[in-house]
């Protein structure tokens, strides 16, 4: 891969990020509203207290003035303080990031692995009962809204069978540490993780299946068979590696969305991650929190897109020359 190719992609990503930073500021101010009035409605504040809060929130200057100080802050990696909790946005995001990375990360991994396996299996026996079975299954889970699937699993496994807790990340009030804490967290993570895995399995399975079907009519596969290779060898060594290309891109791009969390599923399972933080911040609106969250989300998507670009170019030489 040439230096020129890589540097062009990196610069492109940085430009996108700069645009996003500026865009974020205006995005959340398009909708009119006064966070001070909303957050403190009915709290019996005096006019002076309101003015103090407005100043403290940096909402008192002109829009242009606010924008400049926002840019200065962001350049110093200071995302400001949450209106609602007065906590540093960066530490709030840092705290909420780990539950999300664990939940969405693991489920993305699982849905990738199982999705790809299902896709291969279905495509290779196209038209068989197995193909119909697997394709119908993945189409069904893919079509189900994730919040509905989550609610269903919660009712069946959490309430009716009592096998799993009904939300949260640990037993509330638990002091567990070390392995028992980890086990407790895994126990709480099971249902949301299963929901997300099932919901996104279909995407990988269907892409993998159609990609493999395309590959299966290539001449080199006929040649491989003509050489006398066993079916399984033709599949695993000749067909699948070539068919994986679009899936790799999809995986890389979807990993960019890991941080954005899963707003609906996190809300259903009271999972204190970035998705839940986003839905809570929108209510205020807690502008610094929303700006911080969207910056992190966009940066992560941009980064993984860059990785996907570079990876694709590495895997498929046609891309970098084209």
């Amino acid at each position: 891969m040439s230096f020129r190719f890589v540097s062009r992609r990196v610069l492109g990503s940085l430009a996108t990020l700069a645009f996003v930073i500026a865009f974020n500021f205006f995005l959340f101010r398009v909708v009119e509203g006064d966070p001070v009035a909303t957050l403190f409605r009915g709290r019996n504040l005096t006019q002076e207290q309101r003015a103090t809060l407005t100043h403290q929130f940096g909402l008192d200057g002109s829009r242009a003035h606010q924008f400049v100080s926002y840019l200065q802050q962001t350049a110093q990696l200071n995302l400001g303080r949450s209106y609602e909790s007065n906590e540093l946005v960066s530490s709030a995001i840092w705290r909420a990031a780990w539950p999300t990375i664990a939940l969405v990360g693991v489920s993305t991994l699982l849905s990738t692995v199982f999705g790809v396996l299902i896709g291969i299996s279905a495509a290779w026996k196209r038209g068989s009962k197995r193909d119909y079975g697997l394709t119908s299954f993945t189409m069904t889970t893919y079509a189900m809204p994730d919040f509905w699937l989550g609610m269903l699993l919660l009712v069946v496994f959490g309430v009716m069978l009592s096998l799993f807790p009904i939300g949260g990340i640990t037993n509330a009030g638990s002091d567990a540490t070390g392995v028992s804490k980890l086990l407790d967290e895994a126990h709480h993570m099971f249902l949301p993780c299963l929901t997300l895995t099932l919901a996104y399995l279909g995407e990988y399975a269907l892409v993998m299946r159609s990609s493999l079907l395309d590959t299966m009519r290539e001449d080199y596969l006929v040649l491989a068979r003509a050489k006398g290779l066993r079916d399984i060898v033709v599949r695993n060594h000749h067909a699948v590696p070539n068919a994986l290309l679009p899936v790799v891109t999809l995986i890389a791009i979807n990993f960019g969305f890991v941080l954005s969390g899963a707003i609906a599923v996190e809300t259903i399972f009271s999972w204190p991650g970035l998705g839940l933080a986003t839905s809570q911040a929108i209510r205020g609106p807690d502008l610094p929190m929303l700006q911080g969250l969207f910056l992190v989300f966009s940066a992560s998507v941009i980064f993984f897109n860059l990785i996907a670009d570079l990876l694709y170019a590495y895997l498929d030489p046609r891309v970098r020359t084209g």
């Binding site: 693991v106 699982l110 692995v113 199982f114 396996l117 009592s162 096998l163 799993f164 807790p165 037993n171 509330a172 009030g173 638990s174 567990a176 028992s180 980890l182 086990l183 407790d184 967290e185 895994a186 126990h187 993570m189 099971f190 993780c193």
Partner: peptide, 25 residues
């Protein structure tokens, strides 16, 4: 204090076993 016990091994178990199953396959 939470009511339920912590049958967390179940959760770990299924993930690990399913992964192993897939990899072995």
């Amino acid at each position: 204090g939470g009511g339920l016990g912590t049958p967390a091994i179940g959760a770990i178990g299924v993930v690990v076993l399913a992964l192993i199953g897939g990899i072995v396959w």
